[in-house]
Design a protein around this nucleic acid. Sequence first.
DNA 1: TGTTTAACTATAACAGTGTTATGTTCAATG
DNA 2: CATTGAACATAACACTGTTATAGTTAAACA
Lengths: 193, 193
Amino acid sequence: MSQAKSKILSAATELFLSGGTSALSVRAISKKAGVSTIGIYSHFNGKQGILDELYIEGFQLVHDAMNIDVEGQSPKDIIMQGVQGYLNIAEKYEAHYRLIFGESDSSYTPSDIAQKASEQAFNRLIELASLLLPEHTSQGRKQRIALEVWAFLHGYVSLKHHVIASTVTPEQWNYLALRAVETHIDTIIDKHG
Amino acid sequence: MSQAKSKILSAATELFLSGGTSALSVRAISKKAGVSTIGIYSHFNGKQGILDELYIEGFQLVHDAMNIDVEGQSPKDIIMQGVQGYLNIAEKYEAHYRLIFGESDSSYTPSDIAQKASEQAFNRLIELASLLLPEHTSQGRKQRIALEVWAFLHGYVSLKHHVIASTVTPEQWNYLALRAVETHIDTIIDKHG
DNA sequence: TGTTTAACTATAACAGTGTTATGTTCAATG
DNA sequence: CATTGAACATAACACTGTTATAGTTAAACA
């Protein structure tokens, strides 16, 4: 990666983290990176390219957050660590999280390459969820269970972003999510384990 | 409501349903409604006002979808009808759903009045969820249980919108959501009932 | 009936947005 | 040394929400 390219990317990330997508204009990035407006188009594919990079970055973060050391731990402990990591990332990198779930820029649709990153993160989650299930479980069932956990988790994060009605603090949201998912995982273990 | 005002609103709704927020420019609305651009500002509070109307409309739809006839039905049947209604609305009025959960226009934040509409819908859900619980259950616990169901449901709808990775059809998504929430409700009944 | 008032209209402007065309500068390569 | 290619600045295009200005029209009042 050329020097200009990395400078653009770090400028974009910086603007993104502090102000979300609304602060992420092509002119603002180029100004902060010290390159011309055209530079964003020659080094990246314009705004789309920048968002793709951040989208991939976001799913990479989620992926890594669920990279748990399996050694000598119960399946439940492992997956609960993954859940905790997921919630941490969602809070710490809220801008990324919003981007990968379309809460930032509705006109943006991730490129094929960017979508690969999302698949990888989901596969990671399937691996974790599989630990709860007997080995002979079909791939489809594993996917379905992973999707359950993901939907539950993401539902809490998304409600946290958009439900201003109920007076719940960010910490409480995370706690509620953690407890609810734990209960659900217990149910899964009871049923399939 | 004056004639011009209702014409603006129906034009906005029409554009919104067919093309989402991106098709909903002030100029496009005014052109379709046959009024001047300024009309949007004199009759409504500009774009913000239009989005507020649609936001309220969206939560009203959700609210009404959960308006179940309680007579002679088990708590589970009632709440499952509500869940079904929720999923139907989310599919039929996808643009509204995306708006009320911030997937449309990240620069939009609902006004105080609009937020009231969201509270009403949530209260409706709390009423439904309360049917699963003993009468003496505290309001906080009722809220928490309602939030669980909502998070689970919304998680599925939101993933359906944004997860392009896994090859799940819209019908399958709804089915999965329905089954997962049903299982969760059974767990709630077992625990608290 | 004449005048005033209020509500509408069109046009244009402002400051943004993403994107692209034009022409220039400058360093590296043949 | 000449050529090529990459980066540059400037400006433009078509759009966005919003606002100011000025013209039109119809109803209400004296």
